[in-house]
């Protein structure tokens, strides 16, 4: 077994941010293990993206190309990565704990015949073992686990590891992986993609999330949260209450029956902070809560607890942000 390997995520012909965060996580482990960092790059006509991976810390990029791999298909991708693992016997394999990463992690674990340590927020090399730390029970506890047989296979929480500063022109080796016919199974068929044609930032990728709850008052007034999000370049989030009320779509829901996010900044406006909501956002770096009730649970976890009516404060915040931007120009 050798090498610390990551799997890059590609969409719309570009490399997704999580791929660089994986390289950040892999690089420090690899340095301590004195092993190279490799990245598996799967897609159609993607070899030209290798330089960007080298710049962010990959020493080798293993390219698996086929027209049938142009879009993500969990069964095919899991088979390609399985073939790679058989050929290269990685010591450590890291993939993103993302929408697509979670779809392949289970299949891949079954193919590799080793379990996977999911949603890792820290990796530490102790006595030649990779100790993986992950939150459980919605982040109310952390657990540290190790792989005891063969490869250490882990999924990495988005935003938990810093993206390395790129070194443009850093060299690396491009390798090719032959895509076998067995990898090209097609047992599911996309009938229709109902594009919500939003250019909105994805909730789990966002550096900043602006979330609103029942305190916003109505579906119409949620426009204020959208304006604040736009001003901050943030994704819009929502509490379960407002999703259940039909004000916002489920894809924006943060919490136990929605998404788990850990952005640099989480703004919770008019959200009381039931435990089911807190489990989805409490690992955010900075939490700002705006609530009329100073005793609301969200105020206890907030770094900045603003006791105020969000409908009065947010328009002023947007004004202040515009002034700040103007001053910076």
């Amino acid at each position: 077994m050798s090498g610390v390997w990551t799997v890059a995520e590609v969409s719309d012909g570009g490399i997704k941010g999580i791929s660089f965060e994986l390289l950040g996580a892999a690089r420090s482990l690899a340095n301590n293990l004195a092993e190279p960092v490799g990245t598996v790059l799967i897609g159609h006509e993607v070899a030209n993206l290798a330089d960007e991976l080298f710049a962010h810390g990959a020493d080798r990029v293993l390219v698996a190309e086929h027209p049938a791999l142009a879009s993500f298909a969990p069964e095919r991708h899991a088979r390609v990565i399985g073939d790679f693992a058989t050929a290269y016997a990685p010591q450590v394999l890291l993939i993103g704990h993302t929408g697509s990463g979670k779809e392949i992690a289970g299949r891949l674990a079954a193919r590799l015949d080793v379990s996977v340590i999911t949603d890792c927020v820290a990796l530490q090399l102790v006595d030649a073992q990779v100790r993986c730390t992950r939150p459980i029970f919605g982040g109310s506890m952390l657990t540290t686990a190790v792989a005891t047989k063969g490869i250490t296979f882990a999924t990495i929480r988005p935003k938990a590891f810093a993206r390395p500063a790129p070194a443009i022109g850093r060299p690396g080796e491009v390798l090719q992986l032959a895509v076998s016919a067995a990898c090209l199974v097609a047992r599911t068929e996309v009938v229709e993609v109902v594009n919500e044609t939003s250019t909105a930032i994805s909730l789990t990728d966002a550096e900043i999330v602006c979330a609103g709850g029942r305190g916003v008052g109505s579906a119409e007034k949620f426009e204020l949260i959208e304006r604040l999000a736009k001003e901050l370049g943030a994704a819009v989030g929502a509490s379960r209450a407002v999703v259940d009320a039909g004000w916002r779509p489920h894809k924006e829901q943060v919490g136990q029956t929605g998404k788990t996010v850990s952005p640099k900044l989480y703004i919770a406006a008019g959200i009381s902070g039931a435990i089911q909501h807190l489990v989805g956002m409490r690992s955010s770096d900075t939490i700002v809560a705006i609530n009329t009730d100073p005793e609301a649970p969200i105020m206890k976890v907030a770094n900045l607890a603003v006791t105020a009516d969000l409908l009065e404060v947010i328009p002023k915040v947007i004004e202040e942000l515009k002034i700040l931007k103007g001053a910076a120009v």
């Binding site: 015949d113 080793v114 379990s115 996977v116 340590i117 100790r131 939150p135 982040g139 109310s140 506890m141 952390l142 657990t143 540290t144 686990a145 190790v146 792989a147 005891t148 047989k149 063969g150 409490r282 690992s283 939490i287 100073p294 105020m299 206890k300 976890v301 907030a302 770094n303 900045l304 607890a305 603003v306 006791t307 105020a308 009516d309 009065e312 404060v313 002023k316």
Partner: peptide
């Protein structure tokens, strides 16, 4: 093939600051 070695409490979040006052000031 995965062995849990330890459990820990997450580091407590630092005590937050509280803001109140007029909307413009806040």
């Amino acid at each position: 093939t995965v062995k849990v070695m330890s459990f820990s409490e997450p580091p407590p979040r630092p005590a937050g600051q509280v803001l109140s006052g007029s909307p413009a000031e806040v």
